[in-house]
Design a protein around this nucleic acid. Structure first.
Lengths: 219, 219
DNA sequence: CCAATAAGCGGAGGCGCCTCCGTTTATATT
DNA sequence: AATATAAACGGAGGCGCCTCCGCTTATTGG
């Protein structure tokens, strides 16, 4: 689960040059903890979560938080970036560990968490847009690429129907981002994933199971 | 100087119906003081001025400020609205008290103060835009209309050249809003006004003075 | 292994935001 | 003028933000 994040230094806006210095071990550890804790907190309570709470939860002083992330937006950007990294990383890992169609299904479940985090952070993300951050330039294509790998593998293995592409699936799941903020949001989202996967498997050349539902709604 | 402001109640966003209740005398007085003080403070120190300072300066408790203006943006909107009102009011007053071209010149000087306030508030005004406030719908046309009255009067009196319209002058002064934030900003702005007025008078059918500079740089 | 030292830590403290509620006061009623 | 009452006042207090700086510790070179 511990994703090694390269480029740990400055970001937000694009006006820096000399970087890439190796960070001291404790600094890196603290920084990673902060981002991880913040991700959880933002997803659960929205971006307005008290930074002091996050620091405490991560077991560091508030000063440490502020040294690493001078503004709330810096932290938000780091969280968002990590989320995308994790998502792409997960695609690779799953592809190795599972049959292609199961990998795809699991990855879509990851996508649901990603969406959850993203919706919690929407407001701050909009601010980042104004600030001229660069995250948004490559993110969509990175995600799309990760998905494409999974889709192609499953397609080649013949366990999903042949005529769908990454773009189709992203479109099918786009409802995740705009759906209302109900408490059972996550259940609905996972159900949607399950439906889509059933659909994809149904039209496959080699069926893996009878054409019933695929069960497994996760925890 | 005391402009009587109708509609003292809710605003910001457009989702209110029943309004226009007569306000208690002390409430109205405090509200007006707050807006006046805030206008000065915002122009001098920008919108980030401490609300506590503003309340103190206005001689009211912080609670009073918050009752009248639940968020900083509500206060900003009120200030901005008042600024526009004062500007339009000034146009009428000046038209009555001075020869048309002098009225026009003085009004342009008012416009400079307006611009000063507006630049101090830019950031918050942008937030207001997102909030969906209605101020921006009619403001430009109101200002434009006020100016038009002055221009037509002066034109009719023959003390400025005949072929200019309000729009021309607004365009000529548009530099006020984007000019850099230097300390001598106001001097430059007033100099610009002076130049424009000289130009307008120069092409007039009946000259008021020789074609030299018009002096009078105000205080 | 032991300094030396710079990188990092963390929390006290100051400030601003905002709410809540006991007190004051303008206004309507008699 | 006296009274009732709802409207308005104001500031204490709680919380979050952020800075500043004395202390701690990982790292380096001997």
């Amino acid at each position: 689960m511990e994703l090694v994040e390269k480029r740990a230094g400055r970001q937000l806006g694009s006006g820096d040059a000399a970087e890439e210095k190796p960070m001291r071990a404790d600094a890196r550890r603290n920084r990673d903890r902060l981002v991880a804790v913040a991700a959880e907190a933002f997803a659960a309570n929205g971006v307005q979560t008290s930074l002091e709470d996050i620091a405490r939860e991560a077991g560091v002083g508030i000063g440490t938080l502020y040294r690493h992330f001078p503004t709330r937006e810096h932290l938000v950007e780091a969280v968002y970036r990590r989320e995308v990294d994790l998502l792409c990383q997960a695609a690779e890992d799953l592809a190795k560990r599972l049959p292609p169609d199961d990998a795809l299904e699991d990855w879509l479940r990851h996508l649901v968490s990603y969406a959850a985090t993203k919706r919690g952070m929407m407001d701050s993300l909009r601010i980042l847009l104004d600030t001229g951050s660069t995250i948004f330039a490559d993110t969509p294509s990175r995600i799309s690429q990760a998905l494409q790998g999974l889709v192609e593998a499953a397609s080649k293995a013949g366990t999903i129907r042949q005529d769908v592409e990454a773009a189709d699936i992203l479109q099918a799941t786009s409802g995740l981002y705009s759906a209302p903020e109900t408490p059972d949001w996550k259940d609905r989202a996972l159900r949607l994933v399950s439906v889509i996967m059933d659909g994809l498997r149904h039209g496959a050349p080699r069926r893996t199971d009878g054409d019933g539902a695929s069960a497994n709604t996760g925890s």
